[in-house]
């Protein structure tokens, strides 16, 4: 048979794996594996090769209409260019922060921006209360408002060391270094096995073509 090699058509915002590997903790083959995952996610609802918020939520919850405060914020942080969609470069750079080998400073900064809901440059007490309440609302944990206030107060007095009613980056860094478990969600062990989960079919098919 005759195999006609077509030039691979990439999604909008595609960047060379070598470039992305140089800027992130991923290897070139891991970036290629992430591209397989990216293509799947970005074509799950609309086939435009970009990840929309609904597609992100569908991937996280298997439900495109489920709203979640943190899924919204994480999507916004992935959307580095702030144009309402996540392209391949943004996807890889953002996931890079969650790699087990990413610098802890990057994880601390990402978490700070995540919790700084209103993007004022500080985590405010109101924001902390809002996050805890939103989470309790969606979970099966039933805690009274008094108990929530007590928990928030205790955390706040521990974190707001300057006592000015807001947590700045410096206080946040001190706080998470004191309680490193707070960063556990900032590391995704899956990212170390990404080439096993998403082998690059493109590369293997090219090898076969050469052999033929």
């Amino acid at each position: 048979g005759c195999f006609c090699l077509k030039k691979t058509k990439h999604t909008p915002g595609y960047e060379e794996p070598t470039v992305l590997a140089a800027e992130t903790p991923f290897t070139v083959s891991e970036v290629e594996a992430l591209y397989e995952l990216y293509k799947k996610l970005s074509n799950s609802i609309t086939s435009d090769g970009l990840i929309h918020k609904e597609e992100f939520q569908l991937a996280l919850f298997r439900n495109r209409n489920r709203r979640n405060l943190f899924a919204d914020r994480i999507f916004d942080l992935f959307d580095i260019k702030r144009n309402g969609v996540v392209d391949f470069g943004e996807f890889v750079r953002s996931l890079g922060v969650f790699h087990p080998n990413a610098p802890i400073e990057d994880k601390i900064e990402f978490a700070f921006r995540l919790y700084d809901l209103r993007q004022t440059g500080f985590i405010e007490r109101e924001e902390l209360k809002e996050m805890v309440s939103a989470l309790l609302h969606e979970s099966e944990l039933q805690l009274s408002d008094d108990v929530v206030e007590m928990i928030v107060d205790k955390t706040w007095s521990d974190a707001d060391t300057k006592g000015d009613g807001k947590i700045d980056r410096e206080e946040w860094k001190e706080f998470v270094l004191k309680y490193p478990s707070l960063l556990k969600n900032m590391t995704l062990p899956y990212l170390k096995d990404i080439t096993m989960a998403f082998p690059s079919f493109v590369l293997s098919s090219e090898v076969e073509d050469t052999e033929i």
Binding site: R62, L95, S139, K154, D158, S181, L182, Y190
Partner: peptide, 24 residues
Amino acid sequence: CNLNAFDIISYSSGFDLSGLFEEK
């Protein structure tokens, strides 16, 4: 009460990105 408010937040499913890697 030794619960840390940020620890409670980490229970949120929205903060768990592992869903991105699950087979759909």
